[in-house]
Design a binder for these strands. Structure first.
Lengths: 369, 369
DNA sequence: TGCTAAAATGGTAGCACTGTCATTTTTTCT
DNA sequence: AGAAAAAATGACAGTGCTACCATTTTAGCA
């Protein structure tokens, strides 16, 4: 039997009581504890303490704290007072275990480097916060095995729901998500088979529209600058859509440059475009895997006096804020990221049937095409 | 007494079993349940189930799953097999409650819009993940009351530690952090009184160095373009340091433009600079509250053929990746954000004494001064 | 005023684990 | 082979809270 009141706690993480100017005796044994009634120094306050101080039962305290069930005004006040006095912070771990329903929402994203994901998260967060849920997030770094591990880890917190990016997961990850018993939202993409709720837009279609736009503006010698499409699957889908339209019109990319850097996409765009232009002449337009790359390409053009779009047209993807603030706004495809996050979170919480929501996108004709 | 096996669960969040092609009788009552032994359809798998299937005691299963204590190879194998067969996912909520020590780390940040915070988080996450901790994050939107509420909410998950941004908090927030019994790391700033562990750099000093740099390059008619410094306290500290150096040299800002927009900082920089230039002539340098604003200002200059730095010098703060990729790299102050996150997380986990770590910064002389 | 319905309240069994301890089994050493 | 030490194991209380139920108190009404 564990002796109550003498808890250990994680050695590393519980704060050592800092000596306040007062020297601490080092080689001295504990002074004989005051008989049996050690006042349990700074024991963590529990609902029982609050109940006792307020002179009511634990159930009543619980009811007040959760605003559930009916409690008399007088009791409510006593309890609130007692809780405040004791500086009581409810233990949601215990609450979750007892009620078998948590207020945690798991979120798994591929990265937080780009602004895209944070914006989606911001949208998600708005909704979660309003509903009193707390996000538990994991970052997979575009690694599906890491994603699988993260999903398992997050599920072990028994979240009330889970949001993941994209539709591509390992078989085991998919199985876990299917079998975990809570709602699952897959964000960002709708080109594929979803698990439960899917909220995003079609990247394939975005790629198609991009190609149609460039072809409609009579660009024919088009190059592609992107990063690794095996890592960024959605960029791959856009490329696929773009290519399809090209083929349908009897065309092909003049050349393609894949830059491996995942770290700095702007740099990848700069370097990628520089390389492409060095080995190919006669290009009249570049399709970039996203706005970061396109921005890098645009900077390259600015620096080397390549007139955009006369000498070279540029097209990106995402519709980042910054792309409409450059000297010439970039042509791109804008996705409603915040809205996507909100819609996803709302569907997650509202418990409707499994659905696929296409939030669409908007082709933004800037000054670079 | 609650009837076991007949749990309710949150109506909204538990997944409705989708009918698989098979029509579901609608107005039909439950067919008489098979005597007493309802096979508890898809009951959640617990450690007891695993123990039974493996033919061992629960404690042994627990030992295997946590790699703690000694277990025979044969038992280990049986247990692992059983766990895999049953697709068992341990319940960390219960584990946390029982062991009174969690693997959650609370994180409270002011926003996720800017890339700065995500980068710090990436650093933090690297360390947490390696150590098997899960971040629970909250976003305060630069609102200290929201921050207070978030801190309370996060503490109710009884995290093993907590990271917050900045040193300025409400009294109650500070009290909670001091009294919660776990280590606290305050990130990003070291100009002020910390609670426990502080990891960041001096914004006041950054402001000073920026001013010294501009003055050393003989700029004398300096303007300021920033956002609301009452909201972004750290930007305010930089401004304060900058001003101090100006005063020490008998100078003052020619003019200051505060743009309220928190949403798009690049736009704030663009608009802010445009306004400033409209009402003031003779400016030779602009100090921006950060790189986003500076970037906006730079774009304005590019578009309006203002030669940088001949006509106007620009100086920012953060050292964002993009600032070294613009046609002319921006002059700025680079902070080690990823490292900062790593250091903070490491100190949090390693349980040393309260400290203040100055991770410093680097003045990057670009082509805009 | 008495009687019923509704509101308020407290007791207590879980929730799914972990830590401790007692017990059993295996190994090691004379 | 027998004793002692070490390893392996299971039983079970305890973790802080919530759901449920039984009971008490109050309100409503004829």
């Amino acid at each position: 039997m564990r002796k109550p009141g003498q808890k250990k706690g994680s050695a590393a993480l519980s704060r050592p009581r800092a000596p306040k100017g007062e020297k601490v005796p080092v080689a001295e044994a504990d002074p004989a504890p005051p008989s049996q009634v050690a006042p349990a120094a700074n024991k963590v306050v529990t609902i029982t303490d609050v109940a006792q101080r307020a002179g009511v039962g634990e159930s009543t305290v619980s009811r007040v704290l959760r605003n559930k069930g009916s409690v008399s005004q007088s009791a409510r006040h006593k309890i609130l007072k007692a809780a405040a006095d004791l500086n009581y912070v409810p233990n949601r771990i215990a609450g979750t275990l007892a009620s078998m329903s948590s207020r945690l929402i798991g979120i798994v994203v591929p990265s937080v480097g780009n602004t895209v994901v944070p914006e989606v998260l911001a949208g998600v967060n708005t909704v979660l916060e309003a509903a009193g849920f707390q996000p538990v997030i994991g970052v997979s770094n575009y690694d599906s095995l890491r994603e699988e591990a993260l999903i398992e880890s997050i599920l072990s917190w028994r979240p009330a729901g889970i949001l993941v990016a994209g539709l591509e997961h390992t078989d085991r990850a998919r199985a876990m998500l299917k079998g975990c018993g809570v709602r699952v939202v897959e964000l960002l993409d709708i080109d594929g088979e979803g698990i439960d709720i899917v909220v995003g837009s079609s990247h394939r279609m975005a790629g198609r529209k991009s190609a149609e736009h460039l072809l409609a503006h009579n660009y024919r010698n088009i190059g592609y600058v992107g990063h690794d499409v095996r890592v960024d699957i959605r960029a791959g889908k856009r490329l696929e859509g773009f290519r399809a339209v090209m083929h349908e019109n009897g065309l092909n990319f003049v050349d393609e440059e894949f830059h491996p850097s995942m770290a700095s996409s702007v740099e990848a765009g700069r370097i990628g475009l520089a390389r492409l232009l060095k080995r190919q002449s006669g290009l009249d337009a570049i399709y970039f895997s996203n706005d970061d790359l396109a921005l890098g390409g645009y900077f390259h053009c600015l620096e080397h006096d390549i007139s955009v779009p006369r000498d070279l047209a540029l097209f990106g993807y995402n519709g980042l804020e910054i792309t409409r603030l450059t000297p010439q706004p970039l042509s791109t495809i804008r996705t409603p990221r915040i809205a996507m996050g909100k819609v996803g979170a709302n569907l997650l919480l509202s418990g409707g049937p499994s659905t696929v929501v296409d939030v669409g996108f908007e082709l933004v004709v800037g000054a670079t095409t």
